[in-house]
Nucleic acid binder design. Structure first.
Lengths: 195, 195
DNA sequence: GTCTATATAGTGATAGAC
DNA sequence: GTCTATCACTATATAGAC
C-alpha cells in the first residue's frame, strides 16, 4: 500500500470517527483498528493527534468548498442554490439523526475543549456563512444578506440538533418546507423591489 | 461538612464541569479538585461516573421544571410565557457563547457516546418541548401546537450553536426580535380565529 | 466521612527491528 | 512503510487506615 494512500485512509477514518464518536473520545487505537494498521505505524504518518485533527479539518473544508462550487457550477438562481444548502438536512438525514451536524458538533466540542484548532474548525462554519451571504446578495438582499445567511445557518443547526435528539422525520420535512417558503417569499420581495 | 452537603457539592461541580468541558472529558480528578476533596473520598458518595451523570441529569431536570413552574406561577398570557423561554438565550448569553446550550450539547455528546443515559438526558429537551406544546395549545394553536413548539425549540438550539461559534451578540438580539415578532403574529392570528 | 496507597486498563507517544 | 515492544501518564475504581 502506497504511503499517500495510507495517510488518506487515516484521514478518512478519523473524519468518520471524529464525527460519530467525537474527537476527544476517539483514540489512536480506534483509528488504527479502522484502517487496519498498527498503532506504531500510525506515527510514521502523523506525529500527534492534533495533526490528524488539522488534517481532518482541512479535508472537511476542502470537501465543503467543492460541494458549494458544484452547486454554483450547476447554475440556477441564487434562490435555487440556497435551497440546495437547505435540503442537505434531508439528504444527510440518517447521519444527522445519528450524529448531528458534522460542522456544528465539532465546533461545539472544540470550543468546550478550548482546543488550539477550534478557530480552524469554525472556518468551516464561516465558509457556509460567507457562501450564503454571497447568494443572498446575489438575490438582492443587500445589507440584510449577512442577517439572512446567519438565519439559514442557525436554522440548519437547530434542525440538526433536534433531529439528533428526537429522530422525528416529519419535523425535519416540515422545517424544510417552512424555510423554503420563507426563502420564496423573500425572493419575491426582492424581485418586486425592482419595480 | 455534612454528607448530604458534600454530595450536593459534587453534583453542582459536576453539573458545571460537564457543561463547560463536556461529560467525557471531565475526570474524577477535575470534580474532586473543584469540590476540594480527595479522589478516594469521592467513591463514598458515587460508585461510578455514570451515577454522577444520572444525578446531574436529575438535577438539571428538576432545575428546569422549577424554572418553567416559576414562569407559570408568575402568571401572564401563554404568549408572554413563551417569550420568557425565548429570552433565555439573552439572559444566559455569556454562558451560551462560551459553552453552547447545556441541554443541547449534553444530548448531542451522549448520543455520540451511545451512552446508556442518553434517553434520560433527552427527557430534559422533551420537558421544554411538552411545556411549549401546552403553551401553544393555550394560545389556541390546536393541532399545530406540537409543530410550533418544536419550531421554537429548534430555533433556540440553532441560535445557541451559532452564538458559541461566532460570539455575535447582534445576531442573537436580531434572532430574538424576529422570533418574538413571529410569535406576536401567531398570537394575533389565533385571536382573530375567535371572530 | 475523609484520607493515602494502590490496582488495572487505556491513553498518546517513542525506539528500534525488519 | 510497517511492525513489536515499551515508556510515561492519566483514567476509573478499590482497599484499608484514621
Amino acid at each position: 500500500m502506497a504511503g499517500k494512500a495510507t495517510r488518506q485512509q487515516i484521514v478518512d477514518a478519523a473524519d468518520q470517527l471524529f464525527y460519530s464518536q467525537g474527537f476527544d473520545h476517539t483514540s489512536f487505537a480506534d483509528i488504527a483498528a479502522a484502517v487496519e494498521i498498527s498503532r506504531g505505524n500510525f506515527y510514521y504518518h502523523f506525529r500527534t493527534k492534533d495533526e490528524i485533527l488539522d488534517a481532518v479539518i482541512a479535508k472537511r473544508l476542502a470537501d465543503r468548498q467543492a460541494l458549494l462550487a458544484s452547486w454554483d457550477e450547476r447554475g440556477g438562481t441564487a434562490q435555487q442554490r440556497i435551497a440546495c444548502f437547505i435540503r442537505i438536512v434531508i439528504i444527510n438525514q440518517s447521519k444527522i439523526m445519528a450524529w448531528g451536524c458534522p460542522v456544528g458538533t465539532l465546533t461545539s466540542e472544540l470550543e468546550k475543549l478550548e482546543h488550539a484548532s477550534r478557530n480552524r474548525a469554525n472556518e468551516i462554519m464561516a465558509l457556509f456563512r460567507d457562501w450564503l451571504v454571497a447568494r443572498f446578495e446575489e438575490m438582492g438582499s443587500g445589507a440584510a444578506a449577512q442577517e439572512h445567511a446567519l438565519h439559514v445557518l442557525s436554522w440548519s443547526q437547530g434542525v440538526a440538533t433536534l433531529a439528533q435528539t428526537f429522530k422525528d422525520e416529519a419535523f425535519v420535512r416540515r422545517e424544510v418546507e417552512q424555510i423554503l417558503a420563507w426563502l420564496e417569499d423573500l425572493a419575491d420581495g426582492e424581485r418586486s423591489k425592482d419595480f
